[in-house]
Simulated assay, not measured.
Amino acid sequence: MAKNNNNLSAPQFHDPEKARQYLERTVWPYGPVCPHCGTVGDHYELKGKSTRPGLYKCHMCREPFTVTVGTVFERSKIPLNKWLMAVYLLCSSKKGMSSHQLHRTLGVTYKTAWFMTHRIREAMKTNPSGLLGSGGGTVEADETFWLNSKRSKKGREYKGRGFKHKEKILALVERGGQVRSFHIPEVNASNLRPVLKAQMAKDAHLMTDEHSSYKAFGHLFASHQHVKHGQGEYVRGNVHTNTVEGYFSLLKRGLIGTYHHCSAKHLQRYVTEFDFRYNNRSRLGIEDKERADIALQGIVGKRLTYRPINPEVASEQT
């Protein structure tokens, strides 16, 4: 019988005070941390009839703070229990959850739900630890294309031929490990080379398709082997790109089936969301609750306001 780590009946999803306590335990496992000076544990809680729960004051810098100060939740008027539910839903939905679905589920406006999902995606951004393929591992590299609907002069939607008008996404997947994806301007050696050099270890074994751009710098790694998709070759012994193509399959099902239309401006955030869930997948022993907790731990130091995003809210429709 599968282990049920958490569900939407948990108290932190229905009570703002329980949600605050849960968030404090998750974000501050060793006690409150002052977001102004970074002091850990040297604080006291402010109490009084007019004082809101969870307000602390730092002994060092004398500044007041709560668990949401300096995070993507800062100054939000949305109850914390709804924030925690939104994080859980986005982390537990394999192909994502649209802002329209979230606005219906949480009872907030679509504009609010749209902003919430982008702030949660900001929390999902992680600083990569180590290089892919370290110790002689195998890394598969491939690119895919994302086409938003185009309109002709008569206003009719169409899908053009070729790839020039499409958005390009490069993904590097370490077999049995992590994926790192990047929205790149063009698929050529000048764009691929710096990404692979920065993300892959020199002793890694690179697997690609026959795209000529990889041949220009494949010698930088322990080995470079490729399969010839154009000739109907997809597997040759241990040489294949099936892992990265499987990841692209999940990504495309989410973009097409859940989000439908992702502008080029925000495409990297959507890709980062799918990277996060893949890198914290069940096969690695990380279930929905742990995945949501990891996202909550990433809210710190990433305050995101509405104005810099400059959203075209109507661009995501479900």
Rank of each mutant, 00 (worst) to 15 (best):
N4E: 11
N7V: 00
A10V: 02
Q12V: 01
Q12F: 08
F13Y: 13
R20F: 07
Y22S: 09
R25H: 03
W28S: 05
G31A: 06
C37L: 07
V40E: 15
Y44Q: 12
L46H: 12
G48C: 06
K49W: 08
K49C: 02
S50N: 14
P53A: 12
L55R: 15
L55V: 10
K57N: 12
K57G: 11
C58I: 08
H59W: 09
M60H: 10
C61P: 12
C61H: 14
R62D: 14
V67W: 10
T68D: 06
T71C: 04
F73L: 14
R75I: 02
R75Y: 12
P79E: 10
K82Q: 14
V87R: 09
V87S: 11
L89T: 00
C91P: 01
S92L: 00
G96K: 03
S98E: 09
G107H: 11
V108T: 12
Y110H: 15
H118T: 03
R119F: 07
P128Q: 00
S129F: 00
G130C: 00
G130R: 00
L132P: 07
S134Y: 07
G135P: 03
G137N: 08
F145Q: 05
F145R: 05
W146I: 09
L147V: 04
S149N: 06
K150E: 09
K153G: 09
K153A: 05
R156H: 14
R156A: 14
R156E: 15
Y158Q: 06
G162W: 11
K164N: 11
K164G: 11
K166Q: 10
I169A: 07
I169N: 12
L170C: 08
A171Q: 01
A171S: 13
L172A: 01
E174Q: 14
R175T: 04
Q178S: 09
V179E: 15
V179H: 15
R180G: 00
R180W: 02
E186L: 10
V187F: 14
N188V: 00
N188Y: 03
N191D: 04
L192K: 14
R193W: 07
P194M: 08
V195T: 13
L196I: 03
A198V: 03
L206R: 06
D209I: 01
S212D: 11
S212A: 13
Y214P: 09
A216R: 15
F217S: 02
Q225G: 05
Q225Y: 07
V227T: 05
K228N: 12
K228R: 13
G230N: 14
G232Y: 14
E233A: 04
Y234D: 12
R236W: 04
H240T: 05
H240I: 03
N242G: 08
L250A: 11
L251Q: 02
R253F: 04
R253H: 08
L255F: 14
T258L: 10
T258R: 13
S263W: 06
S263M: 08
A264C: 06
A264T: 07
H266L: 04
R269M: 03
R269W: 04
Y270C: 00
T272K: 02
E273P: 02
Y278V: 00
N279D: 02
R283M: 10
R283C: 08
I286H: 14
I294N: 05
L296C: 07
Q297F: 04
Q297M: 09
I299G: 04
G301T: 01
Y306N: 12
R307L: 13
P311L: 13
V313W: 09
A314P: 06
S315F: 01
E316T: 11
